[in-house]
Nucleic acid binder design. Sequence first.
DNA 1: CTCTGTGCAAAGCGTTTGCAAACGA
DNA 2: TCGTTTGCAAACGCTTTGCACAGAG
Lengths: 136, 136
Amino acid sequence: MSSSERTNFVEMLRDVKLKVTPQRIAILEQIQKNGHFSIEEIYEDVLKMFPSISLATVYKNIHSLMESDIIREIKVPGHKSKYQISGNSRSYMGCSVCGLVENIETPNKKAPSSASKWKIVDTMVMFIGICPKCKK
Amino acid sequence: MSSSERTNFVEMLRDVKLKVTPQRIAILEQIQKNGHFSIEEIYEDVLKMFPSISLATVYKNIHSLMESDIIREIKVPGHKSKYQISGNSRSYMGCSVCGLVENIETPNKKAPSSASKWKIVDTMVMFIGICPKCKK
DNA sequence: CTCTGTGCAAAGCGTTTGCAAACGA
DNA sequence: TCGTTTGCAAACGCTTTGCACAGAG
């Protein structure tokens, strides 16, 4: 990871009044480095860099980071939730076979008038398909 | 429920080689009648009409009905999965506060070329917002 | 120093499984 | 009759909680 990324996370955390702990940074770096991760995968990867971390800590952090909108939950139907650093992309390809998630460029999308009584705060487009690996 | 709806479910089940049991019909009727339901809600409502049904039966049926694509799973980030009878609509409004899901008319949507290596089988658009009730 | 975060172990809950009996075809 | 489904209870596995200690601010 570059130091600018680290600085980035530190600022993000300060902005939302979360303390900057090495565990938190390690979790964020893993999520950023590897894209879309389930809790289990995040835990196992952080463990390599940070052998003393506990699963409970990962869960607690995933929650507080989601509440602060630093990370975001993505779910492909039939698979476990995955997490990614919040960003502009809200369009995903999800593999129905293995659960892989990839960001794609966002097709512009407006909520139809039938939703006018709602206050719309976000738009998510998910394409469900079969990824190149699972096609074989 | 109308008898045509019942007939409908019977045919759906036969088409996919699932046996027509009263429990299955009751589950399907509840889902159809009430829109988007979590497993817990389906169970509690079916229980009123069918006091002997067990939670395990609901779970088993939700799975086989999903495998046969008779019902579909929808998940609003941060809330439990809900289920609905499969249909044409694959566009939803999801309430980030209470988890309410509503179908909306589908805005046409094509996967961008960046996804060309995938085999796309479905498209789902989800608008996240705050429903009229939670706005108050 | 104070308050938040961590780690551990136990508790909690939603979901799944095994099995015998009931049921649909 | 044969294979599937149901209902029950036990087992499972993921997630949360309580608490004492460590660490950030």
